[in-house]
Write a protein that binds this DNA or RNA. Sequence first.
DNA 1: GAGTGAATATTCATATGATAAATCTACACA
DNA 2: TGTGTAGATTTATCATATGAATATTCACTC
Lengths: 238, 238
Amino acid sequence: MDREQNGRNLTQQLVHTLGAAIASGRYKVGEGLPSEAHLCEEFGISRSATREAIKMLTAKGLISSRPRQGIRVQPRETWNMFDPDVLGWILRGQPTLEMLKEFLQLRVAIEQEAAALAAEDQDRPKIAAIGAALRRMKDAEEGLGDSVDADIAFHISILKATNNPFYMQLSSFIETALRVSIRFTNRIKGVETASYKNHKRLYDAIDQGNVRAARKASDTMQIEALELIKSELANKVA
Amino acid sequence: MDREQNGRNLTQQLVHTLGAAIASGRYKVGEGLPSEAHLCEEFGISRSATREAIKMLTAKGLISSRPRQGIRVQPRETWNMFDPDVLGWILRGQPTLEMLKEFLQLRVAIEQEAAALAAEDQDRPKIAAIGAALRRMKDAEEGLGDSVDADIAFHISILKATNNPFYMQLSSFIETALRVSIRFTNRIKGVETASYKNHKRLYDAIDQGNVRAARKASDTMQIEALELIKSELANKVA
DNA sequence: GAGTGAATATTCATATGATAAATCTACACA
DNA sequence: TGTGTAGATTTATCATATGAATATTCACTC
């Protein structure tokens, strides 16, 4: 194993190496990974480090480990899909259009309601943070700063403005999903899709506490992207 | 530590003991847990077992561990709230009304869209499974079987009918949230709140592929509960 | 006195070897 | 054919030693 990989320690490195391998399907569900002893040899590290990596992957639901049975890949239903690492491993591979659609179907649900909650909650400092993110998007349109980062920051700031820890916790999920989606849609359309106008409409609705308008603005933004992907999917099949 | 705790091995036991302690707030965020060596002594187990438990909790985002700094409780934002274990530890404690409200706010988003997706997708076998769960609810009303279990099975079957792995993965989240919520609302109202009629309306909408009606039926079911909790919250404050 | 940097001590990280526990497999036996 | 037992394999746990990282302290310089 490449011991220079980032600043991570051995255990972390192995976790990411194996996690990515499992997510990519290199090890099939149900089948076994190499045994503990075999992994040590393969990566040239001690049993402690290996076992700790195995335990971390177990905690994320990717594998199980029992005496005499060995280490097995668990069915995907038990994977902690909302764990940022797991999500990253899945997406880092080859995100299929199908997968992108599934992401967006969840984003539609989450972000729409988040916008509504933010509008309802009226936490002024946090709404100000949304405004700041909006300005960053405008700046980005004029070449100042990265537009993808600004776009993501905007969406995250809305989640934070819900003051609901569950929505806040979805930040990393949304961030990952969004980054992949944006890259993908930009590739399809050949242009940047982030539209300042749509985002401003959403911000204004939240700022004014207009729950219904906030929900609608969020919905509008996402349905576009979802339709795009669905039509791409249809093309692929045809 | 009680070595007879379930069939779990030492590491698992320690994970659950510490996880529950952290979630309950026994160890404050930012502050340190006892050091590795101290934990070994306290629970009478070896360093390997202790370290593996620490790694599992790290993987779930509850703690961090660095040389010379020790083991620290991470801020709640980094906890994997959607990990069934973490969620269980949080709820097993004393779920506050506030927390219940937050759950429900997420359920509203998820289940509403899930119902819409199920109606749109029209996966007949899975819709049949929703019908079966509905019948179990009816039976439960007549004293055959547990009504809470039947209620939960109904909601889970809708998630499965979306054919979207992200929604499916939320099953355990919804199950936990639902079980706690039902117990709570029943206590408040002094009666069973599961209403067969509402659930049937939702099933019919999905069965007929009526996306709009499905969304609305799901929404109606949950807004009721949310309003109940909100008014309880208002009472408490007053 | 303030700031800088080296020495120190503490704590986690890794390695290794030994033993225990779990459980699958196969074989002998009824 | 079914059942129980012995053996083999693999993870689980323990114990101990050494390495690496870093917060703290304190002496030193300006």
